[in-house]
Design a protein around this nucleic acid. Structure first.
Length: 263
DNA sequence: ATGGTAGCGGTGCTA
């Protein structure tokens, strides 16, 4: 007997500015769990009641003005952990993980990887250091041999096929060779890029800048990714990008990416 | 090459 769990990631660029748009998408897409990035809110200001009244369990890891991650789930969120291990001095809210138990227990890890621009510079150094910490946490997660979804706004364009104009990103922190190598170092531990696995062709994006009519020109990049542990990849029945969300009123500059697991 | 937009918070930073 098949059971389906749809898990999505969505950089919403401000939870309060996006409350209506997020509710509309939740209603139509009917995900079971959502990894949110850039809530741009402290935990106390997150509209918990709005979601809890509609049956969502909510776990947040916020900060003032910038960054901030959260998980919404139809099932209770267990063993919630906040903050990426490896640097006690790092106070940026970019990582939260929790377990949902349906037919199988799934570890959901929600990340907002540093942008890193301008590169080179201290922000790029922080990005690379953060990716090294992520690599170490990802290796630990694989050792559990459980289904794990490692998803979020990676701020990494993995391949030229993931950008409408790759040449425009040549010197950008999202596409520099060192960034892409660090991404592959994680991927090659044994993760599956859920969307790329199902759709090998180029031209599928998850982000279009607000500026310079990027959406109207379809000048996009694919930087929001769901990486699956082998045990999760074995359960995958589908994956996709909800592109149409970008064309609506007051959209985020990112759109939801989802994966469906038989779990 | 340049300048373009949005969110937060109440100015300039981040993206």
């Amino acid at each position: 007997m098949l059971a389906f769990m749809r898990i999505a990631t969505f950089n919403i660029n401000g939870i309060r500015a996006r409350e209506a748009a997020l509710l509309e998408w939740l209603e139509e897409a009917r995900p079971d769990a959502v990894l949110l990035q850039e809530i741009k809110s402290v935990d106390e200001a997150f509209p918990h009641a709005t979601f809890e009244e509609r049956g969502w369990f909510v776990a947040t890891h916020g900060q003032k003005s910038f960054n901030g991650v959260a998980i919404l789930s139809r099932l209770p969120l267990e063993d919630v952990e906040r903050g990426l291990p490896g640097d006690d001095a790092d106070d940026q809210a970019r990582w939260i993980e929790a377990t949902v138990v349906g037919r199988a227990a799934i570890r959901l890890c929600c990340l907002y990887l540093p942008n890193g621009n301008p590169a080179p510079g201290p922000k790029y150094d922080y990005k690379l250091a953060w990716m090294e910490r992520l690599r170490r946490r990802a290796a630990e997660l694989l050792l559990t041999e459980e289904p794990v979804v490692l998803g979020g706004d990676w701020n990494v364009i993995p391949q030229p096929e993931d950008a409408a104009r790759p040449e425009a990103w040549a010197a950008d922190a999202l596409f520099l060779p060192e960034t892409r190598a660090a991404f592959r170092r994680i991927l090659h531990q044994g993760w599956t890029d859920a969307f790329r696995c199902r759709e090998p062709r180029p031209g599928h994006y998850t982000f279009w800048d607000y500026q310079a009519a990027a959406w109207e020109k379809n000048n996009g990049i694919r930087i929001d990714h769901l990486l699956l542990s082998p045990q999760a990849a074995d359960l995958m029945t589908g994956a996709g990008i909800d592109k149409a969300v970008r064309g609506r009123e007051k959209p985020s500059d990112h759109v939801p990416v989802w994966v469906e697991l038989d779990a």
